[in-house]
Design a binder for these strands. Structure first.
Lengths: 240, 240
DNA sequence: CGAAGGGTTGATCAATTTCAATCGCGGTGG
DNA sequence: CCACCGCGATTGAAATTGATCAACCCTTCG
């Protein structure tokens, strides 16, 4: 099975065979985590950078009133928190939302690799910029989109991200997220998520069941979401 | 008047006299922008990094339905989009919300400075991590806080950020944001912002008028917001 | 002096949450 | 093997939050 980290970076920059060897070596000893297992908790001292090879993680925070907000999903190929060692402690937690295989790369290891492999450095910085764009898109969704638009937008985003790392099968892809997790990510109640999903299904746009999404009518879904993929910056090869 | 960029970075890392000279040289030729002036528009080719010296900017995006969402405020000392040249085009716009004085630093200039001044490099990466934490906090606010909590939380954040660069005067600070701008930042309507501000004033927590905020009872405001300053990472000196 | 842009308030409306109940499924212990 | 349990999914009805619509006021600025 392909190394998703290599696959993702090679979608952002050109990698040489040497670069690929280095990336594979750095992620050669992954660990497995069960769903719902916390990898890092808010308040923990900062540690190594994580690289997701299989499965899904999320960043989240629990509020004083007990509600939870998910701020990001990390799927295979995604890395989190380059340079994180510069901060003293984590301001949020990271959890596996589905069974995951995750490699850890220490800051020094990463720094050495980035010094020796400028393509990798460029790729990492680019990935970080894209992740920031994704966060901004989430802010926009939460602030100014209705619940239906919000759900549709998130599915569009996740579908495209999954597709660039080869995890989609035509209009289908595995989405190992319960409606409760979706609710925590979109700032809604599980009850309302359920109604919105029904609406999208009846509209013939998409259907979610047993851990996988079927895009029934992509055009319709994109129209409902008001989705513009520019923030995912998928056309990078031609830049300097 | 102190160079706010220097002031901000020296709150994150120790700077030598040489570092400070380099930073001052890099920001020596700022330009002035009137309120509401766009510095960068969505779709523009990416350019230099901006450094705010005086005044306030915001990042924002206009949706198809004409509404606007602000995703970040940039105050004096804040820099935006280190490495931005790695992306082909901007996925959002940046505008002055108040009259601003802004320096631009090209990517090569910045790279040279970071190579020659490791402290500056550490400071820039740290600042970027903090900015990401701020974005995540905004996602949490939009997703899981009520309108009163949201307003209170934003004011707490802006107050602390302003204080670390020396822009506060006891419980007072200049907040050059109209209620309309606040509404665009918090995903609410101006009408509702107005009612929430009234509520906070009547509760004796804070008051906003003519471009400045007075924190009447900080404890009360923090309690209403459920504010935890950890995400601003203000105690960094002791790290490696 | 007049116009424009914010700020303020009231009344009504719509979206989403809350509360409550039921259903279905996979896993577990007997 | 089967009854039971717990969690997620689903649906209905009531309650609440925040949006919308519509004035009016005040200050600033040309």
């Amino acid at each position: 099975m392909a190394n998703r980290f290599v696959q993702k970076l090679s979608g952002l920059v050109d990698l040489t065979a040497r670069d690929i060897v280095a990336l594979e070596a750095a992620t050669a000893r992954p660990r497995n985590y069960a769903a719902r297992k916390d990898l890092i908790r808010e308040g923990d001292e900062t540690g190594a950078m994580l690289v997701v090879l299989e499965g899904w993680l999320c960043r989240y925070k629990i509020l004083p009133n007990g509600t939870r907000q998910i701020m990001a999903f990390l799927m295979p190929g995604d890395a989190c928190d380059l340079h994180i060692k510069l901060l003293a402690e984590m301001d949020h937690s990271i959890q596996a939302v589905a069974p995951a295989r995750v490699a850890t790369v220490s800051r020094t290891e990463m720094q050495t690799m980035m010094q020796d492999h400028p393509n990798i450095a460029r790729g990492m910085y680019t990935a970080q910029l894209v992740d920031e764009g994704i966060m901004r898109a989430w802010i926009v969704s939460m602030g100014r989109r209705s619940s239906v638009e919000r759900v549709a937008h998130l599915i569009c985003e996740l579908y495209l991200r999954a597709r660039t790392i080869g995890l989609t099968d035509d209009g289908d892809f595995a989405l190992p997220l319960s409606q409760i997790v979706l609710a925590d990510a979109l700032g809604m109640t599980p009850v309302h998520i359920n109604r919105v999903l029904k609406e999208l299904r009846l509209a013939g746009a998409m259907a979610l069941s047993r851990g996988s999404v079927t895009i029934i009518d992509a055009g319709k879904l994109v129209a409902i979401a008001g989705f513009d993929e520019n923030y995912l910056h998928r056309r990078l090869r031609q830049m300097t």
